[in-house]
């Protein structure tokens, strides 16, 4: 086999050219917003189609689990079950949707301080290193960069890129994400920074806590309003562990997020405050 024929040399030169171009683009931190928009625009129709399929898979997974339980409990009703499967499938999906939307509606009704816009999740980060979402509300709907994104469970993240009819949201789980936070307990009110934790992707980390800060397991953590992006009082999660920092003066709190990021289907984007926060 000839490994170094003319074709191979041309391919290697092409390879090196692309390599050098990408490396130089990365060093300049050039994100090519126009190309990003174009790529998002091309992929959005496919994402819409496949997100329906993904929803079906998730619902199907839940449905299969439910069926397994029903099957064990009702072996003598197998024949009837066949007929009921389809009905249960549809009812389960409707009930789940109803429950979700009701919770979102209650949250919106109770949260009068903020103006919010509902959005559906239509895609997730195609990379495996980062955590972001694509939502179906964009610049034409009044969405702007840095707007906080929440659900009835708590803080989800913030908008980092806006297209015509869609927007990209960086999740709080992402390693590059951070939010000024504080302990909700009145006796503590310790402040710190909550960020993504690449070593344990399922947990968040609250850093910059003084060693003698009053932080214990079970403490609720919320935004402090100091960072400039997130308003005060949005629930982030609950402390599950407190560990001393290697340096000696500080400690970290490991936080389980209040939001189940793997099952996000609808979110709210906070577009403004009804009652401006007075100093």
């Amino acid at each position: 086999m000839r490994w170094f024929d003319k074709k191979t040399v041309v391919l290697c030169v092409l390879f090196l050219t692309v390599f050098l171009l990408v490396v130089s683009a990365a060093r300049l931190q050039n994100r090519y917003p126009l190309m990003s928009r174009l790529a998002a625009a091309v992929l959005t129709p496919f994402d819409y189609v496949f997100s329906g399929l993904a929803g079906g898979i998730q619902t199907g997974t839940l449905f299969t689990r439910d069926l397994a339980t029903v099957y064990r409990e009702n072996q003598n009703l197998r024949a009837e079950n066949q007929e009921l499967r389809h009905v249960v499938f549809q009812l389960t999906e409707k009930a789940a949707e109803n429950e979700r939307l009701q919770a979102m509606l209650e949250f919106r009704t109770k949260t009068v301080a903020f103006q919010m816009k509902a959005a559906a999740v239509i895609g997730r980060d195609p990379g495996t290193l980062n955590h972001s979402l694509l939502i179906n509300q964009g610049a034409s709907d009044g969405i702007r960069v840095n707007m906080p994104v929440v659900t009835h469970q708590g803080l989800v993240g913030h908008v980092i890129e806006v297209f015509g009819g869609t927007a990209k949201v960086r999740l709080l789980l992402d390693a590059n994400s951070s939010a000024a936070a504080m302990v909700q307990r009145p006796q503590s009110r310790a402040v710190g920074i909550v960020e993504g934790n690449p070593a344990q992707p399922a947990l968040l980390r609250m850093k910059n806590l003084l060693r003698d800060s009053d932080v214990i397991k079970g403490d609720k953590i919320m935004t402090s309003g100091l960072g400039g992006i997130y308003p005060k009082g949005l629930l982030i999660g609950e402390v599950v562990d407190v560990v001393d920092d290697d340096g000696g003066l500080l400690k970290n709190a490991m936080i389980r997020s209040a939001v189940d990021f793997s099952r996000l289907e609808e979110v709210f984007v906070i577009t403004g405050e009804r009652t401006p926060v007075r100093p």
Binding site: V18, F19, A26, R31, Y32, S36, A39, D125, S132, K168
Partner: peptide
């Protein structure tokens, strides 16, 4: 495409997959 749509450092996916 992954790099353009991802919020990660630009180029990691392109360079890895191309190689």
């Amino acid at each position: 495409l992954q790099d353009l749509l991802s919020v990660g450092p630009f180029g990691v996916h392109t360079l890895t997959k191309m190689t």
